[in-house]
Write a protein that binds this DNA or RNA. Sequence first.
DNA 1: CCGGATCACTGTAGCGCTTTAGTACCGCGT
DNA 2: ACGCGGTACTAAAGCGCTACAGTGATCCGG
Lengths: 349, 349
Amino acid sequence: MVDAANPAEPARKRKRVTIADIAERAGVTSGAVSLAVNGKPGVSDATRARILDVARELRWRPSHAAQTLMGKNSEAVGLVLARPAEVIGEEIFFSKFIAGVQSTLSGRGYSLMLQMAEDTAAECAIHQAWILDGRVDGILVLDPRIDDPRIEALASLDHPTIVVGGQTDERSVRSLHVDNGGAMRLIMDHLHGLGHDRVAYVTGDQAFRHISERMDAFSQFCVDHGVWGQSLAGNFDPERAREATARLAGAPRPPTAIVYDSEVMAIAGMSTLASLELRVPDDVSVLSWEDSTTCQVLHPTVTALSRDAVSLGRTAAAEILQLIAGEPVEQEDVETRVVQRESTGAPRR
Amino acid sequence: MVDAANPAEPARKRKRVTIADIAERAGVTSGAVSLAVNGKPGVSDATRARILDVARELRWRPSHAAQTLMGKNSEAVGLVLARPAEVIGEEIFFSKFIAGVQSTLSGRGYSLMLQMAEDTAAECAIHQAWILDGRVDGILVLDPRIDDPRIEALASLDHPTIVVGGQTDERSVRSLHVDNGGAMRLIMDHLHGLGHDRVAYVTGDQAFRHISERMDAFSQFCVDHGVWGQSLAGNFDPERAREATARLAGAPRPPTAIVYDSEVMAIAGMSTLASLELRVPDDVSVLSWEDSTTCQVLHPTVTALSRDAVSLGRTAAAEILQLIAGEPVEQEDVETRVVQRESTGAPRR
DNA sequence: CCGGATCACTGTAGCGCTTTAGTACCGCGT
DNA sequence: ACGCGGTACTAAAGCGCTACAGTGATCCGG
């Protein structure tokens, strides 16, 4: 039954139903059909109803390609992930964020265009291709860097963009403000409140704007409150977090608390501490920036900064949709709080 | 219906470079340009080179919309996720799978179209819209069910489709075979080898084909090896896993080992066991279907079936690309093994 | 009773590209 | 000299849809 000569080539012959078919069936021209189905004035109510009936009967769907050729919206939002596949697969943040974005988007009939890129240059190229082709109506940018080339590039394309955790707020490139400084103060308040005055901060990639904001707030807090604060540069790699942890633990005067920039790093750090026979939180308190189920079930359970990445995704999606629609973009704060669990406690005197 | 007098409406005026521009500049017609840029015969080498030069100089990019209107490929693969946002955000499988898919896809310049759907009917509608609009060249289907309506619908659309873990192998709808039965035997061999003869299996959603395959293999093994085996229906919800675990633990003759269908369920189960003062693996062994960092760092560390969801995604992507290209689809097995950790041990006599 | 406004719809020109039919020109054998 | 087959290109017809200038027909006030 399947043709033998070329088994893999499907007979995708499905003759498309076009507005011309509807027009013929309804006894009007395609122009009238276009007006009718788009709810524009120019056809009588009776004719419109008849046309819509025929369209429904013929199960007509507008050709997306033809519409974007005419400059219509593509009903898709683009997101390029510029981190290695391993990190994305491991770090729960992405999956939650994407799930959040999706849940808002699909409620409005929008799709998400996803791609991974090696570096920022490749990401820019993808953005440009998508925009020029009208394949996406808006773009979501994650992990903005200091002086991020992507933002400049997107601004020059003048296309709706939401930078998650960015600063810029031009006409088309807006930011979803994330209060990293405030969150860091929340964390430090918690630790300082417990009595810690020697705190280390093992960071993600400092090139990221949000990380540098956190670092600034960290230093600031330490200076203001007389806390001995030390930050160690990482890059979200659990291996680096292990090394940093070991170095901190082996120092002449080790910190009494360590803050990690991600859940994966915090877990790696805790396992290192365990292997060094250091008890959490008795010998050292641990706090993770980013909460997850793992934090809840690990022994000891991990105190974490909970930001709800799903909500963050939802908010980002809502904002890009507003921007696309030309509505004023309502900034909405994502609830952030420190969930206290067993991994933090008062330092030993 | 966007009103005109809107300050946020960007002046997206960027005049597109078309083949007509190139034609004019190169002193030929647009038809010649089309032949030249598509590497088709009909233009002399000299003219072709000249045209390509101009195209490069003008930074021309083909209009995607116009091309798909002409029936060209869209260079995108579609994936609809039909599970609640919470599950997708929590279950590491999805994020790994998507990361894997992406890493193969973006290497070939393809994008992923992602959407979430409430139910199977909505998923079918999305598939149909995508296909009819030529927005995707192929579709990836996850979590096939027994007599899955999606597969039938897709088969009738005759569009390249890879069903991950499916059975069907028609012309256009192929399956990435996943040996669930074999994996279950691996698990049971491990447990049986340790001396367990009372094993419980807390399942995900039985409506899913892969889960039912696992259950069948489970029963089969138990019968063949004289193991008392009990499966309890779950639905990937950690709460359900907790209840099931409590019920099992409270039974007159509780099982000596419990297998969970997902990492999230296994973790929920272990925390329940801990709250019931049952020790793992002394009182009961625990095994998770699906490995993750959490399994490696939990106390005790969790023995898990490791399938490498990233590879699974890569393979699925490779297969759909082959199917789209009309090449023979090479079935490739994903390595599956039981990673033994602390949560499984010999049962107490 | 007529100019003008309004309505309901038609006809056609694109959007950017591919594709096919057609033209002009070249070299070649006879 | 003639026709023949190639080559190198042009011209034009779509793909499905929207936009916009018309075209009648109807309505209306003066």
